[in-house]
């Protein structure tokens, strides 16, 4: 790659189900400037070259997790990926794999969030709600900080080879959120929550591949959470606690 390069090519996945029978690749030249992110490059294309290009974004600062896509062969957030750091003349940009494509780079996240809902990602009302605040010590809060940080961008799910072939597998994000409630001192439904994460489409499908850890933009370690749950499930079953 020439060092004084001032332009790069974006090779973008295009598919409009209303017009196209098959997807195709379209190339755009994008002027390079210091600090240019892939998302800004896509916005340049949208503003100056092709108003028909569809992609999702919101915060532009890696806070919302909406611009997840497949960039240069790796699942990444477009806003967080610096074009210069990719060190390529041509950058391939495709939608997240494994999810239905709505248009171009926009995928339908419904199957992903359906898995998230399966682990019941909310506090469950206890016998006497609202009488008192549920207090936590700083240590108890720290124990789940990592898992609260997950903003459900779906990169880990896209990077997981098991989720790529097994569409029913809950996947790293949903399992991280299952552990988020197990790790929370205020929840107390450990065995029921383990029961939700166990089973053929849950914990036992994880083979400690660590792809999810590699791509997480929030520094979450889904594999660690899953392994903790496997261990917890086995020990509690041995103690006669967790029921199927």
């Amino acid at each position: 790659m020439p060092i004084d390069m001032n332009e790069v090519t974006f090779k973008v996945f295009r598919f409009d189900p209303e017009k196209d029978k098959k997807p195709h690749w379209q190339r755009y030249r994008v002027a390079l400037r210091p600090g240019l992110s892939v998302l800004e490059g896509l916005l340049d294309i949208l503003d100056h070259q092709d108003g028909s290009l569809a992609f999702r974004f919101s915060c532009r600062g890696a806070v919302c997790g909406i611009c997840a896509m497949y960039i240069a062969g790796t699942p990444r957030l477009a806003c967080r990926t610096q074009v210069a750091e990719l060190k390529r003349e041509e950058i391939t940009i495709a939608p997240l794999p494994g999810l239905p494509i709505i248009k171009d780079l926009v995928v339908d996240m419904k199957p992903f969030f359906a898995k998230y809902e399966q682990i019941r990602p909310y506090f469950l009302a206890d016998a006497v709600p609202g009488e008192k605040e549920s207090l936590q010590t700083p240590q108890q809060r720290r124990a789940l900080a990592e898992y609260i940080d997950c903003f459900l961008c779906g990169l880990c799910h896209a990077a997981c080879p098991v989720a790529a072939t097994d569409r029913r597998y809950l996947g790293p994000a949903a399992l991280v959120k299952a552990y988020r409630f197990i790790a929370d001192s205020r929840d107390g439904h450990t065995d029921a929550r383990l029961a939700l994460a166990l089973g053929e489409d849950g914990l036992w499908r994880c083979h400690t591949i660590f792809n999810c850890v590699e791509v997480c933009p929030r520094g979450v370690d889904p594999t660690h959470a899953i392994q903790e749950m496997k261990r917890l499930a086995v020990w509690r079953r041995l103690a006669g606690k967790t029921r199927p």
Binding site: P97, A164, I209, E214
Partner: peptide, 19 residues
């Protein structure tokens, strides 16, 4: 329509799993 992709890259954990 969905894109299928098995992401291995050069990630050691993925190669260990596949092998």
């Amino acid at each position: 329509m969905r894109r299928r992709e098995l992401w291995l890259g050069r990630r050691l954990g993925a190669w260990a799993w596949l092998l």
